[in-house]
Design a protein around this nucleic acid. Structure first.
Lengths: 139, 139
DNA sequence: ATAGTTGCTCTAGTCACTAGAGGTTCAAGC
DNA sequence: GCTTGAACCTCTAGTGACTAGAGCAACTAT
């Protein structure tokens, strides 16, 4: 019953077919058994693993952390401090990114407010983009 | 006085030397005049343009918008509504990104809070990553 | 049985750079 | 003027994470 073709697995997980094959190629997914006619047949555990991958990627975990997490997730009886640490790292990154994006947001909306209907020559957008000093934030 | 070698331009703008040449190759920067010995010589306007590019990239503008902005910035007497529109688009993107990252942040910190020192087998991090339904947000 | 979809492998392309090879030119010190 | 070492030149190829296409095989529905 829980036996998927690659297309079904794709539909189930939202990961595109070529991407699934790519993941197999780089060793993120184990090579599944094949049908008589050499087509991939996946089971529920492959589906779960792919969901794990897809979700972690969607959350912005970089590929190396992902590999590490999969490794760790395989050892069901190990303590999960290491997993914890990866999540914590990612959390710090996300916080950082949020604050930088917030500064950027302020910069962009400031640009929009401070110039009303002039010409490009006298446009603050151009100025701000040309001169980093004016934007008052550091990227 | 305002006459730079590629290395000086790089130091001045923070854009790496090969990247400057790359930008020239893809037509983001005009090909500058050369010295007797065929080395690139940049002037202040090239420096400004590169700063514009670097800053816009740092702010996350995609390459196509960048090209459009450079185009527009070239027409000093045109109205800057188009430029405005690009900035506004980017602002919407940034807002969107911030809200998605904020949701992600909540998810990550929820993962950390809800599991204290078990083993990987019973770890919520693994569960949450495996099952998207549990995270209550959509990426 | 046949048509149409889905699957297979393999190669090559994408984007925005980055790295390296192999050679030339410049700037400084003697 | 000469030498040395850094900076420059072009060109090719590599990166990561996919994506697209060619050319062919297998599965599914009628």
């Amino acid at each position: 019953m829980s036996d998927y073709s690659i297309g079904e697995l794709s539909a189930e997980t939202g990961v595109k077919v070529p991407t699934i094959r790519y993941y197999e190629g780089i060793g993120l997914l184990p090579a599944p058994p094949r049908s008589e006619g050499n087509q991939r047949r996946y089971d529920a555990s492959a589906r779960d693993r792919l969901r794990f991958i897809a979700h972690a990627r969607a959350m912005g975990f970089p590929m190396p952390s992902l590999r590490a997490m999969l490794q760790i997730a395989g050892h069901k009886d190990a303590p999960c401090d290491d997993l914890d640490a990866l999540v914590r790292d990612r959390l710090v990154e996300v916080d950082d990114r949020i604050s930088r994006l917030t500064a950027l947001r302020a910069e962009l909306s400031g640009m929009l407010e401070s110039h009303h209907h002039g010409t490009v020559g006298e446009c603050r957008v151009v100025e701000v983009l040309s001169d980093h000093e004016q934007c008052g934030c550091e990227h």
